[in-house]
């Protein structure tokens, strides 16, 4: 890596850290301005007095001015102490990590589904431009794009769980069932829901990128030189179309998180999406802020990685 590249990475990093700060300030402020109070869960406890409540508030740091609370929180974040949950006093980072596996598993399964379907559909549409296959894949994309995630989830539950009883309605596993098959049956519907709703992103971009390459003279020339269609599809078409997909993936991968929020709620999937909504309901600020920051970092890391990867993968940028 040359000096220019190092500078590029540093500048990229600087901008992203500023963005993180902005997200955290906005999140912190909005959260504390929103109606509701984390203390409300204690007020109804038997034998609760105003004094005792004030004590609790002090213990949670809620009696401090907002900016002080923020700085305290920020200091903690930077030193690796993400605070403790208001609900059960366990460390926020630990809670997030323990919910992460479920989300990652759901995310990967959904990604596998949406990537293979989306890229496949886009490629087929481009190769059969203007024919029936192209129209059908376009219409499927548009339909999937306009379906709300929760609605699709509920429809799946109704059809496959309630009517056909093929799959459980939700949760990570059934009590007492630790088998892989049991787990996969639980994973199937949420993964399919989350996967299908993100198909259109990949299929539309793939259709566009692959279509552009097919229009280029290089494809006709490759054929004129006697290269096989397999070689041309893999080495010219796929390679050329996947390259611009890298930054697109960097931008759209994190949107899986917002999809996961809904999917996990509909299917009671114990990931960080559901953790976020639960914590929001309990006004568990440290956990909410923790998940928020975690997601923001994920978004930035993902887009940064994609940019770097694109830089490495495109020989024109290396030259």
């Amino acid at each position: 890596m040359g000096n220019g590249n190092l500078l590029y990475v540093l500048r990229l990093g600087g901008v992203k850290i500023l963005l993180l700060l902005l997200v955290s300030i906005t999140g912190f402020t909005l959260l504390h301005l929103a109606p509701g109070d984390p203390l409300s869960q204690f007020t109804l406890a038997p034998g609760m007095t105003a004094e005792r409540l004030a004590q609790i508030a002090h213990g949670m740091g809620l009696d401090q001015p907002l900016w002080r609370q923020y700085l305290h929180w920020l200091h903690g974040i930077m030193t690796g102490d993400w605070g403790r949950s208001f609900r059960d006093q366990s460390p926020v980072l630990g809670i997030i990590v323990s919910h992460l596996t479920a989300t990652i598993e759901l995310g990967l399964a959904a990604l596998g589904i949406s990537f293979s379907l989306g890229l496949g559909m886009g490629l087929m549409g481009a190769l059969r431009a203007g024919r029936t296959v192209d129209d059908v894949t376009s219409v499927i994309s548009i339909i999937l794009f306009s379906l709300p995630t929760f609605w699709l989830g509920l429809v799946f539950i109704y059809i496959f769980s309630v009517r056909l009883q093929w799959f459980p309605t939700g949760n990570f596993s059934s009590p007492g069932d630790r088998s892989i098959v049991g787990y996969l049956r639980h994973l199937a519907l949420p993964a399919l829901t989350l996967g299908l709703v993100s198909v259109p992103v990949w299929s539309r971009y793939m259709r566009t990128f692959a279509g552009e390459i097919l229009k280029q003279d290089q494809i006709r020339t490759a054929r004129a030189l006697g290269l096989s269609s397999g070689r041309i599809i893999v080495h010219r078409l796929l390679r050329g179309a996947l390259l611009p997909m890298i930054p697109v993936a960097g931008i759209y991968l994190p949107t899986l998180l917002s999809g996961a929020l809904v999917t996990e709620t509909v299917f009671s999937w114990p990931g960080i999406g559901r953790l976020f909504l639960d914590s929001l309901q309990y006004r568990d600020y440290p956990v909410v802020m923790g998940v928020l920051m975690f997601s923001a970092i994920l978004v930035l890391v993902s887009s940064t990685l994609a940019e770097l990867l694109h830089h490495v993968a495109d020989p024109r940028l290396r030259a």
Partner: peptide
């Protein structure tokens, strides 16, 4: 066969 525009005829990658 060769064509008019050599740049777009070659594989840019």
């Amino acid at each position: 066969m060769i064509f008019q525009d050599p740049l777009s005829s070659l594989d840019p990658l």
